[in-house]
Structures are given as structure tokens and as C-alpha cells.
Simulated assay, not measured.
Amino acid sequence: MARRPSSPARSLARRAARPLAAALFAIAGLAGLSGCVPARILGANVAILFDSPLPVPNKVTAPYRPEARLAVLWVGHATVLVQIDDKLILTDPVFTSNVGIIVPRLVEPGLAPEDLPPIDAVLVSHMHFDHLSLGSLSLIEPKVRTLLVPQGGLVYVPNYAFESVEVPTWTTWQQGDLKVTAVPVRHSGYRYGLDRAWMDTSYTGYVVEYHGIKVYFGGDTAYQRDHFVNTRARFPGIDLALLPIAPVGPHDFMAPKHVDPAQAVQAFLDLGARRMMAIHFDTFINSTDTFGQAPRELRRVMAARGLGPDRVFLPRHGEQRILIARWAP
């Protein structure tokens, strides 16, 4: 990841902490980081492992936009606040300073949890610590009306004050005119590694529909063309696809579960969506990628395929965009 200036004291602290960090990454191996992958990730990131997250200037404090029909705000990683008319949806909320105790944020959350408006539906794509953050759900508990998780996911969800619902693939949860359908992706749903054998349905994507607007949320997925083509067949005219573009490396390890920027763009085209917003990059230490690598690669792919920012865009942490505005009276 990106290297930042370091004081002598900080350098000493890092050297002293390396054995502990190595042990923690070894424990992370129980959650699926097999072989030498934890050591490679640690080696690529040890220089910033103990840095404070970068600040996000000028955060939005009033994210509900009455002038918007469709607006999005990237909090970071896979956390996006989606507004469709009067409905608010939050994807994979993570507001904590780290995930799984050991993985620190590189950039602070782009929205303070206390500034969240009431949320109609929280969508959790799978059970990994950087997507199902129980600490974050506790922070926003009073603001959440309903939590949606993939099939089998409720086993890891405590008894919160809000309703929690499992949504199996190709089934739809509906509240009034708001509909959320679970759609297939290619990933994994276990949380600790030891549960790998039986947590084999606990990952999903979602399509949100409200007042004729459709938003696809891919969560975390590898490239599998038929998943995206089948989703397009059932949901033609998707207005926005939220698609991950990282982690990329180590490539052989990541490819079975994650799309790289070129594959994300292909998934966007397979979905037939009008616009794509890139997510799941430059927020947590979870790969050997350098900071900014995935966005640079995405820009190269966009140029090669003739896609401008009107079709594919890279948000900044904390950036909010109105994609469909209301007509002026």
C-alpha cells in the first residue's frame, strides 16, 4: 500500500510489533488465508500497518437529498448509502477503525454513523468481517429498520432491536413498494474458516427496486458470466451497478473470489447497467495491492473500452453524487 512519512519512534514501534502482527495474520489464516498469503500481505503492508487512517475532509453531514431520485454516497470499502426517492438503503456497513480486530482502515469512514438518517434496509452480502461488522451494526442499531442477509447468515447475527431477515437466492423481500431480491454471485460465506463446510450459501448480491429505479449491489464476487447475464435477464434496465474492483493480488489467490478492474467492467456490461460505481478498494489492508493500484487499472480499462466517467465512475471516500435528479416544478 502507499508509504507515508515515518518518525523514528513509529519505526521502532513497528519493528517491535512485527512478531505480534505476524501471529495475528497467522490466525487470519484460519479464516481462509491459506499458505504463504498472510505473510505476503503483511510484508507488502507492514510500513503502514500501524498508521492512523487518512482523514476525509468536508464530510457530508446531511446525506438525505430531497432533490434526488437516485443518489449514492461512498462511505468506503463496500459501504454505500443509496437513496432512491424517499427510501434509504445501506450496503455492508463498516464504520469501525478495523475489521476482525487485526485489519486497520487506511481511510476513515466517509460518513459519520451519527449522521446517518433512518435506514429502510441494510444489505449484508456475506459473513466476512469486512462486510458483516457487528460492531458497526451496534453503532447504527437505532437507525436501522430491517437487516437483510443471505441464506444461513442469521446464525452470526445477534438479537438487535431491528428485524433481521434471510433472503435466499432469487427470492424477494418487500416492504411496500421497496423490493430487494437476492441474486447469485461467486464468492464464499464462511466467517471463521472452520465453518467453511456448512456456510456454503451465505453470500449474495442484491437488486433493489423502487419506483421504477433499479440498483445492483455485487458485494464481493469473482467473475462468472452466467450470474450477471441471468440477473440482467430478470432485471433489465439496471440504473446503477455497485461493483468491487479489488483486491487484485496475489492474483492466483484472489481470482476465484474477486473481480479485478477489467472483470468488473465486463460484469457491468454483462448486467446491461446504465452506470457503474466502483467500490471495494483502498479502504482496508486485505491484499498485496498498492494504494491506488485498482483505480489506476480501472481508468486504463475504461480508456481501452471507450467508457467515460458518465458510464463508470470512481468515487472518493465520502463523496456523494446525485445520479438521477427530480424534475424541477
Rank of each mutant, 00 (worst) to 15 (best):
M1W: 05
R4E: 09
S7F: 10
S7M: 09
S7R: 09
R10V: 10
R15D: 10
A16P: 11
L20S: 12
L24F: 14
F25E: 01
F25G: 04
F25P: 03
A26H: 14
A31K: 13
S34D: 12
S34H: 14
S34L: 13
V37M: 03
A39F: 09
R40M: 12
I41K: 01
G43K: 06
G43M: 05
A44W: 06
A47S: 15
D51N: 11
S52R: 14
P55E: 05
P63T: 02
E67F: 11
A71T: 02
V72Y: 00
V72W: 03
V72C: 06
L73S: 04
A78W: 04
I84W: 00
I84F: 05
D86P: 09
L88F: 11
I89W: 00
L90M: 07
T91S: 09
T91G: 05
V94Q: 03
F95A: 01
T96P: 05
T96V: 08
V103W: 08
V103K: 08
R105S: 09
E108M: 07
P109A: 06
G110R: 01
L111Q: 02
A112E: 14
L116Q: 05
L116E: 00
P117A: 07
I119S: 02
I119E: 02
A121F: 04
V122N: 03
V122C: 09
V124Q: 02
H126V: 08
L134N: 08
S138P: 09
L139I: 10
I140E: 05
E141W: 12
V144F: 11
L148R: 02
V149P: 07
G153E: 03
G153R: 02
G153H: 04
V155Q: 14
Y156E: 09
V157K: 02
A161L: 13
F162S: 06
F162M: 10
E166G: 12
T172Y: 10
Q175I: 11
Q175M: 15
L178K: 06
T181G: 02
A182I: 05
V185N: 01
R186L: 15
G189A: 08
R196Y: 14
A197P: 15
T201G: 10
Y203V: 07
G212L: 06
I213H: 04
K214W: 05
V215L: 04
F217T: 05
Y223V: 03
Q224G: 10
R225E: 12
R234S: 08
P236W: 04
P236M: 03
L240A: 02
L240Y: 04
L242K: 00
I245Y: 00
A246E: 01
H251N: 10
D252M: 13
D252Q: 12
P256C: 04
D260L: 04
A262H: 06
A264C: 08
A264W: 01
V265Y: 01
Q266H: 08
L269N: 01
D270V: 01
L271W: 01
L271D: 00
A278H: 01
T288D: 03
T290E: 10
F291Q: 05
P295S: 00
R296E: 11
L298G: 00
R300H: 11
M302H: 04
R305W: 13
L307D: 06
P309C: 11
P309A: 12
R311M: 11
V312I: 15
L314E: 03
P315A: 09
R316S: 15
E319Y: 12
E319V: 15
I324P: 02
R326I: 04
W327N: 15
A328F: 13
